[in-house]
C-alpha cells in the first residue's frame, strides 16, 4: 500500500515540476519526489513483522527477522544528498532573484 503511495509521490513531484514556472516550487516538487523515492526504498526493504536492523539487548542474534539494512543505509545517504542539492538549488534561486528580480522562469524569457 505504502509502496504505491510513495510511487504516487514521485508522480506528484514530477507534476509539481511540470506545472509551475516558479523556481521555489520546482524545488518543492523535487523534494516531494525525493521523499517519495526514499519511502519507496524503505518499503521495498521492509519485511512484514521485521525488526529494526539494530543489534541490541532485545534482539541479540540473527535469529530474528530483520528488515533490510542496506535499504536504510541507502536512504540515509540519499537524504543527506537531497539536502545538499536543495540548498544549492536555493542558492541558484536567490541568484536568479537577484539578477532578474523574480522567481518566475517564464518572466526571465530566453536566457541562454
Amino acid at each position: 500500500m505504502i509502496k504505491f503511495a510513495s510511487l504516487l509521490l514521485i508522480v506528484i513531484g514530477l507534476y509539481g515540476i511540470l506545472s509551475t514556472r516558479n523556481v521555489i516550487k520546482i524545488l518543492v516538487g523535487i523534494n516531494v519526489m525525493e521523499i517519495g523515492i526514499n519511502i519507496f526504498i524503505i518499503a521495498i526493504g521492509f519485511v512484514n513483522g521485521g525488526a529494526a536492523p539494530i543489534l541490541s539487548v532485545d534482539n541479540p542474534g540473527s535469529l530474528l527477522k530483520f528488515v533490510d539494512p542496506v535499504a536504510q543505509a541507502l536512504v540515509l545517504t540519499s537524504i543527506v544528498i537531497g539536502l545538499g542539492v536543495t540548498a544549492l538549488g536555493l542558492v541558484f534561486a536567490r541568484k536568479i532573484h537577484k539578477k532578474h528580480g523574480t522567481y518566475d522562469l517564464s518572466e526571465i524569457g530566453g536566457e541562454s
Binding site: L14, I17, L18, R21, L105, E111
Partner: peptide, 8 residues
Amino acid sequence: IKPARTVL
C-alpha cells in the same frame, strides 16, 4: 532550456 521540457 526550460526544465519542464526535459522532464516531459
